[in-house]
């Protein structure tokens, strides 16, 4: 099981500084947040009868708030448990069977997206003090276009025998909603960083300032 491999290694492992209990708590709760967002139908049901969920919002937010390492671990844990059989993918689906379905690309893209957007978020936090919401939004928008949608399209094309063009068109439906969710994710991330100033920012500053042995 190659995916167990990466997920077991990454959540717990080798970073410069080992995660403490609070980090584990954050990883676990954000993984649960992504699961809950995938399961609880959102505010409305759109014209196609497909419930709008907060899932992509939760994935992006996880990266924006936790940063690349813990963000990847949280969303990776969610994906791993879903593939292992816990019914936590959207609409209560689960299992390796997902990888043969049209949403395979999106599922695989989620942990990568959390990592990429988390990496961008640390840059934003280090370099900017103003208009962070805009920068966060741009980070999330770029990540969702480059990672989520492109892998999503590949997944559709591979698993449904549609051409890339057709896949592109069916993926297009998700763009408007995703942009709204990215805006929300950015605004919420700014608020969370304000409510919990040390969740990512001071970590960065402090670990840079701290001598090796306290």
């Amino acid at each position: 099981m190659s995916n167990t491999d990466t997920a077991v290694k990454n959540p717990i492992s080798t970073g410069r500084r080992r995660w403490n209990a609070t980090d584990l708590g954050l990883i676990a709760v954000f993984a649960a947040l992504v699961a809950a967002a995938a399961l609880v139908p959102g505010l409305a049901v759109n014209g196609f009868g497909v419930p709008i969920t907060f899932q992509t919002l939760a994935v992006m937010l996880t990266g924006l708030v936790l940063g690349p390492g813990r963000g990847f671990a949280a969303v990776g844990l969610y994906t791993l448990l879903g593939l292992a059989g816990l019914p936590i993918f959207s609409q209560g689906r689960s299992g390796l069977g997902i990888l043969a379905g049209p949403s395979a690309g999106y599922i695989i893209a989620f942990p990568i997206a959390a990592c990429v957007v988390g990496w961008l978020a640390t840059i934003v936090i280090r370099r900017t003090t103003k208009a962070r919401a805009l920068w966060f939004f741009l980070s999330a928008a770029v990540t969702s276009a480059v990672v989520v949608h492109s892998l999503g399209i590949v997944g559709i094309a591979l698993n449904t025998k549609a051409t890339l063009g057709q896949a592109f068109l069916s993926d297009l439906v998700f763009y408007p909603g995703d942009m709204v969710k990215n805006i929300l994710a950015a605004v919420i991330a700014v608020a969370l960083h304000r409510a919990f100033p040390d969740i990512l920012v001071r970590r960065v500053r402090r670990s840079a300032a701290q001598p090796a042995k306290a």
């Binding site: 403490n20 209990a21 609070t22 980090d23 584990l24 708590g25 954050l26 676990a28 709760v29 954000f30 947040l33 937010l61 708030v65 919420i188 608020a191 969370l192 409510a195 919990f196 969740i199």
Partner: peptide, 15 residues
């Protein structure tokens, strides 16, 4: 999200 993060921290502290 605020509640969730606070909850995560409490859990971390308790652990």
């Amino acid at each position: 999200f605020i509640t969730s993060v606070a909850f995560a921290r409490q859990t971390g502290e308790a652990l």
